[in-house]
Amino acid sequence: MVLVFLALALLALTWPVFAAAALVFVVVAALALRPDPDVRDRASALRRAGWFLAAGAAFTAAAAYGRGLAATTFGLLDPDDGCMLRRPEGYDHRVGASADGSSSMWPLRDTTCGPDLVPGYVNPLVVGSAVLFVVLLVVLILAEVRSRPLPADDAARR
């Protein structure tokens, strides 16, 4: 459990690195699709670009979740201190944290300080990126399987 906490805390701190990596993977995928006279097999170029896009989708999901996690009071022991850090305007320390407020790790939400601290685009972006990642993996694995010759075909060629 401690490792999960440390991983989430590290993700909340380093989400910009994940976002930059996602951008790099998407750019590399676009570069893999450009016409190259040396590459005769267009299908292998498409598969290679697909793997880069899948990695980009995974990093996008991680970056979005980390961004949402960084906006919450996650990891702070005292909700009052977290609310003072996250919403210094309009938060009255004497009143304390909202009695009806709560937080959740999925879907990511934190209403401890009143309105939700998590930006509205975070949960849809995480879900969309994760779905894109899974779909790309399935398509790419099926493409790899279909592109390989059957063992019977190898024996017949010999």
Rank of each mutant, 00 (worst) to 15 (best):
residue 122 V to Y: 00
residue 134 V to Y: 04
residue 147 S to Q: 12
residue 14 T to V: 09
residue 119 P to R: 00
residue 12 A to K: 02
residue 92 D to V: 13
residue 132 L to D: 05
residue 105 M to I: 15
residue 69 L to R: 06
residue 154 D to I: 14
residue 70 A to M: 03
residue 39 V to S: 10
residue 24 V to D: 08
residue 42 R to C: 01
residue 62 A to H: 00
residue 114 G to W: 02
residue 34 R to E: 09
residue 76 L to E: 10
residue 40 R to H: 13
residue 55 A to S: 14
residue 91 Y to S: 07
residue 140 L to C: 07
residue 81 D to C: 02
residue 48 R to T: 15
residue 53 L to S: 15
residue 96 G to F: 04
residue 32 A to H: 11
residue 63 A to C: 02
residue 101 G to C: 00
residue 115 P to N: 05
residue 118 V to C: 03
residue 72 T to D: 03
residue 57 A to N: 02
residue 17 V to N: 02
residue 113 C to F: 00
residue 141 I to H: 07
residue 100 D to K: 09
residue 109 R to M: 11
residue 143 A to V: 06
residue 90 G to C: 01
residue 30 A to L: 05
residue 27 V to G: 10
residue 91 Y to W: 12
residue 112 T to Y: 00
residue 16 P to L: 06
residue 147 S to F: 04
residue 97 A to E: 13
residue 52 F to A: 15
residue 40 R to T: 10
residue 65 Y to S: 03
residue 23 L to S: 13
residue 98 S to C: 08
residue 31 L to N: 08
residue 86 R to Y: 05
residue 3 L to S: 09
residue 51 W to F: 15
residue 153 D to P: 00
residue 105 M to F: 14
residue 39 V to D: 06
residue 74 F to A: 01
residue 7 A to E: 04
residue 148 R to F: 00
residue 49 A to S: 15
residue 106 W to G: 02
residue 88 P to N: 04
residue 145 V to Y: 04
residue 131 V to K: 01
residue 14 T to K: 09
residue 81 D to Y: 12
residue 121 Y to E: 05
residue 70 A to H: 13
residue 98 S to T: 12
residue 65 Y to H: 02
residue 51 W to M: 12
residue 36 D to S: 15
residue 112 T to W: 01
residue 38 D to A: 13
residue 114 G to I: 09
residue 47 R to A: 14
residue 76 L to Q: 11
residue 91 Y to R: 07
residue 18 F to E: 00
residue 74 F to N: 01
residue 29 A to C: 04
residue 44 S to M: 13
residue 138 V to L: 15
residue 23 L to D: 14
residue 100 D to T: 13
residue 156 A to E: 14
residue 158 R to E: 15
residue 102 S to A: 13
residue 50 G to P: 05
residue 107 P to E: 14
residue 75 G to K: 01
residue 71 A to M: 11
residue 102 S to W: 06
residue 90 G to N: 06
residue 66 G to C: 07
residue 136 L to E: 05
residue 79 P to E: 14
residue 108 L to Q: 09
residue 93 H to V: 10
residue 118 V to F: 05
residue 124 P to S: 00
residue 147 S to N: 10
residue 148 R to D: 01
residue 125 L to M: 11
residue 44 S to F: 03
residue 129 S to N: 00
residue 26 V to D: 11
